[in-house]
Each structure stands twice: as structure tokens, then as C-alpha cells.
């Protein structure tokens, strides 16, 4: 049963990924990406990470991609403004061939891992409580640093987004 769920989610994730890079309309791509992200959220749930599952759905699919969609609609791009991409498929094929050694390398390295059960663990593992304990006991530094990072990106976004007063000059 778990296998079937995993397989379904994986197919959706991969299909969404391919859709994302193949659609020429950014809107369609973004929707494909959401499919992938939600599938990934499901896989997180399979991997005993319910909290991350929530975060993935709410924060990623819900917030970040919504923001992306908003920007796409905000710019209101017409079809004829989209770049002409005649060599897209050939590049993808060449790139895929070049990526083969990279994938082989990594999969070979993981292949030697001893087999171990990956069933969903008990209630506590991956719950908000255990997650919070881990975060605030051990990972406080990066967590706090994230706030600095967000501040920096906030300033950056403000700089970029504001209308320029010297635009004419």
C-alpha cells in the first residue's frame, strides 16, 4: 500500500517537474511546480515528517508559489512576449546525457547503505513538539540567523521593488 502511495506521489512529482520545464507559459509551469511540491509534501508525510508536510503545503505551495503566481499575473505577460525557445528540447537532452555520470555517482554511493525499515514511525517523531525541542535546543543559531537573512532579503526586496525617484534623471 505504502509502495503504491509512494509510487503515485513520485510519478506526480516527476511529472510536475517535467511539466514545469516543458510548458512555455509560466502560469502552467507554476501550477506544475505546485503539483510537485504537494507530492513532495506527501512524501514527507510518508517519511514521518508531518510537521514538514504542513510547512511544505502551507508555506511553500501556499505562500511562496502564490507569491510567484501573483507576480506572474501582476506583470500580465502576453503570449507574444514570451521568449522563443526553439532549441529547448535538444538542450534538455544534451544536459540529461551530461547529468548521467553525476546521478550514477550519487546513486552508487547510496546503494551501499544497509537496508533498513523506512516505515512511518510513532506519534512523537516528526511532531511539532519534537520538532520544536530539536529546533530550540540545538538549532537555535541557524534559526536566529534566518531572521537576519530574511531582514537582508527584505531590505533587498524593498530596494528592488520601490519605484525609483531618479528614474527620469
Amino acid at each position: 500500500m505504502v509502495d503504491i502511495i509512494f509510487l503515485g506521489l513520485a510519478i506526480f512529482a516527476i511529472g510536475g517537474g517535467f511539466g514545469m520545464i516543458l510548458f512555455s507559459q509560466p502560469m502552467h509551469s507554476a501550477i506544475s511546480l505546485i503539483v510537485t511540491l504537494i507530492s513532495l509534501g506527501g512524501i514527507f508525510a510518508l517519511l514521518s515528517a508531518p510537521f514538514l508536510f504542513m510547512v511544505q503545503i502551507i508555506l511553500y505551495a501556499g505562500a511562496i508559489i502564490t507569491l510567484l503566481l501573483f507576480i506572474i499575473m501582476f506583470l500580465n505577460i502576453r503570449d507574444d512576449e514570451l521568449p522563443d525557445e526553439p532549441n529547448k528540447n535538444i538542450t534538455i537532452i544534451i544536459g540529461a546525457i551530461l547529468l548521467i555520470p553525476f546521478n550514477i555517482l550519487i546513486l552508487k554511493a547510496f546503494n551501499t547503505f544497509p537496508e533498513k525499515s523506512m516505515n512511518i514511525l510513532g506519534k512523537d517523531f516528526g511532531s511539532i513538539h519534537s520538532f520544536g525541542m530539536e529546533l530550540f535546543n540545538k538549532w537555535l543559531v541557524p534559526f536566529e540567523l534566518i531572521s537576519m537573512l530574511l531582514l537582508a532579503s527584505l531590505v533587498g526586496a524593498v530596494v528592488y521593488a520601490r519605484k525609483d525617484k531618479n528614474r527620469d534623471g
Binding site: 505504502v2 509502495d3 502511495i5 509512494f6 513520485a10 512529482a13 516527476i14 517537474g17 517535467f18 514545469m20 520545464i21 510537485t36 513532495l40 512524501i43 510518508l46 517519511l47 538542450t91 534538455i92 544536459g95 540529461a96 547529468l99 553525476f102 546521478n103 550519487i106 546513486l107 547510496f110 546503494n111 547503505f113 537496508e115 533498513k116 525499515s117 523506512m118 516505515n119
Partner: peptide, 20 residues
Amino acid sequence: ADLLLSYIALAMILFSIGFL
């Protein structure tokens, strides 16, 4: 779904798609 490798493989496929 019991194998670590299948998750890694899925991840690597997605990673490669992103790179492409």
C-alpha cells in the same frame, strides 16, 4: 518505499530536472 535509495533516486531526478 522501504528503500532509502528510491527516495534518493526521486530526489536526484527532481534535482536533475531543475538543473535542466
